[in-house]
Amino acid sequence: MENTKLVGIASQVRRDILRMVHAVSSGHPGGSLGCADFLTFLYFEKLRFDSNNFTMDGKNEDLFFLSNGHISPVWYSVLARSGYFQVAELATFRKISSRLQGHPSTDKKLPGIRMASGSLGQGLSVGIGAAITKKLNHDNHLVFTLHGDGELQEGQIWEAAMYAAANKVDNLIATIDYNGRQIDGDLDQVLALGNLSAKWEAFGWEVLEMDGHNFDAIRSVMENAISLTGKGKPIVIIMKTEMGQGVDFMMGTHKWHGSAPNDQQLESALSQLSESIGDY
């Protein structure tokens, strides 16, 4: 897909995110905005799926798992814009009886979601399990996961990292949203991750780095990552992003991790983002 088209879709996704969290005065816009470019690229250019015929088993499709479930707004928007469900349903986000729960869930049967997430640290293990089943089923499609950088403070991530490398789970591409911020402040202040690339390398992973806001860079690194699958090592992409990307007053701070804009802030934010394919 042309970059200009991707830029347009990502702008629309950012509008969706802001309008969703504003409508219920809750949710997590910061990380959602930061991952809008990546998820737009993944769903509109790379992932192989059939949004008209969603199945839980996802055989002969690529699978995506959102491990940092709190950035559900960006995922819901991209799923709707990819045809999994009507974009009008985005207006029900976090409201009573909605299929768009605060954190992603399967129990209300929203197409596109195969695992609940929200309690952090579980999605890499889930992705490994799904990737193993793909191999057992002789299905050569891939499994993608996305994680927050703060989420790497959970010990289970490193259990999973050790397992995937030791067992050559090489049909799995994990991406880390490395924005350097978490609820309580800068990641380095809360609990520094140290040398993140060296850690993953030491665990036996193929490590790539990527600018998460440049579609040429995303394309090139993702294609490289996919070319590295099937070679005996799991792959991790450390994706540099800016929390709140696309809205000037939401960038450069952790404050918008989990708070919604008021009416005036929403107006100011939307004025910075073009309505490319139409608001829901």
């Binding site: 088993d57 999605g123 089943t133 289970q156």
Partner: peptide, 12 residues
Amino acid sequence: ANMMCIAAGMTI
């Protein structure tokens, strides 16, 4: 912990 979530993923 890893075992339980790998098992969950394998059902897919």
